[in-house]
Simulated scan of single mutants.
Amino acid sequence: MTKFHGTGVAIITPFNDDLSVDHHALANLVDFNIKNGTNYIVICGTTGESVTITKQEKQAIIKTIIDANNSRVPLVLGIGGNNTSAVIEEIKATDLSQIDTLLSVSPYYSKPTQEGIYQHFKAISEVSPVDIILYNVPGRTSSNMLPETTLRLANDFKNIIAVKEAGNNVHQYLKLLRDKPDDFLIISGDDDLVLGVVLAGGAGVISVLGQAVPKQFTNMINLGLEGKAKAAYKIHFELMDLTSLIFSENNPAGIKAVLEALNLAKSTVRLPLVEATNELKEKVKIALQKLD
């Protein structure tokens, strides 16, 4: 379980100007993160623009990241959706021999009941050959997986080991932290709230911003895990402006603007997303200069 304590990053999918996947930039970004302290990498999550990636591209992305990682850190693969049978088919059809855990989002658009969410993940748990991290992000799914449902799944299925909670709801975090099984991990998906979550007993983060500033972000999380609140909040305050900026238009356009300013990837995104505005790009550059 300790492999998912600390800082995970939801890695972007870099694109060339012609919208093809930039595998060179992707490999460099993986290496940059590992060398600067990132503890694990999430492949093809929301930030990786998974909904506009083809099956063939996804397999190529997985291979690039596995090769660049070279077994240095654990890898988490995003496989989720609102068609339970299709999710199960993808899990069965995917070579997971180099993947440590799945990240599976709560069903979106369909707006199932809590029982529907439970039965969805029950079906996935029963076929998955690797452990599962649940992903609750009601801002994107239009459906909140309540703590009672998360904890029911945590207690009923041993291969459901954690939840990436991204509801931006402090009370919901605290209920999960108070009532969770001892070996179940609460991982923050909210970059702005993560430090408070870690100090309250959370395991860490799956971060968007962390991939651009892995050294600072990982240091903040590690200090939080050690209970060194004052030192951790010093870094949190330094990162606050940049954290707000990357979500001000859309994700991942914001983080791609940061990575472009750092010469790590182009800011190109696929429709229906659009590239960050020039105004945002200028604000990002100023924030990075202040951060040094």
Rank of each mutant, 00 (worst) to 15 (best):
N39R: 12
D190A: 06
Y118F: 13
A154P: 05
A27Q: 14
K215A: 15
I124W: 08
V73W: 08
E115Q: 13
T150G: 06
V208F: 03
E238R: 13
G204L: 01
A93G: 04
T277D: 05
R140G: 08
L77T: 10
H236T: 06
N83T: 12
L26N: 11
D182Q: 14
E275T: 11
A25N: 12
I62P: 02
T141S: 12
N263K: 14
R178T: 13
N222E: 13
N33K: 09
V284K: 08
A203D: 03
N263D: 15
N33R: 11
K175D: 15
M240F: 13
L209A: 02
F4T: 11
S110Q: 08
L264E: 03
K158N: 15
T94N: 08
F247K: 04
P14I: 01
S106F: 01
A123W: 09
V87C: 04
I11A: 05
T94P: 10
P138W: 07
S142D: 14
T94L: 04
K266F: 04
Q172G: 04
I160A: 03
I41E: 10
I88Y: 07
L273G: 01
P272F: 02
P147W: 08
I286V: 15
G78E: 09
R72A: 11
K228P: 02
L153F: 02
A253L: 06
H120T: 06
T141E: 04
L193V: 01
V73Y: 06
S188Q: 09
D95A: 08
K256Y: 08
D182K: 15
L199P: 06
G8T: 00
I99G: 03
L291F: 00
Y109I: 00
I286P: 00
L174Y: 15
E282T: 12
A232E: 05
K55R: 11
N69M: 11
V258K: 11
T150A: 15
A93S: 15
I246Y: 14
A229F: 00
D67E: 15
T218K: 14
K234D: 12
Q114L: 01
F157Q: 02
E249D: 04
T52L: 04
T113E: 07
I79M: 12
G201K: 02
L96N: 02
N28S: 14
G201A: 05
C44A: 14
T38G: 08
E260T: 09
A25K: 12
E148R: 13
Q172W: 05
D183Q: 13
V213H: 09
N28H: 11
A232Y: 04
F247V: 11
I124H: 09
K281H: 05
Y173S: 07
N219G: 00
I53W: 07
E57M: 01
G78C: 11
T101M: 12
T2F: 11
A60T: 10
Y233E: 06
T54V: 02
V30F: 03
D18K: 09
N36F: 04
K175G: 12
A25F: 03
K92A: 13
G224F: 07
L273W: 04
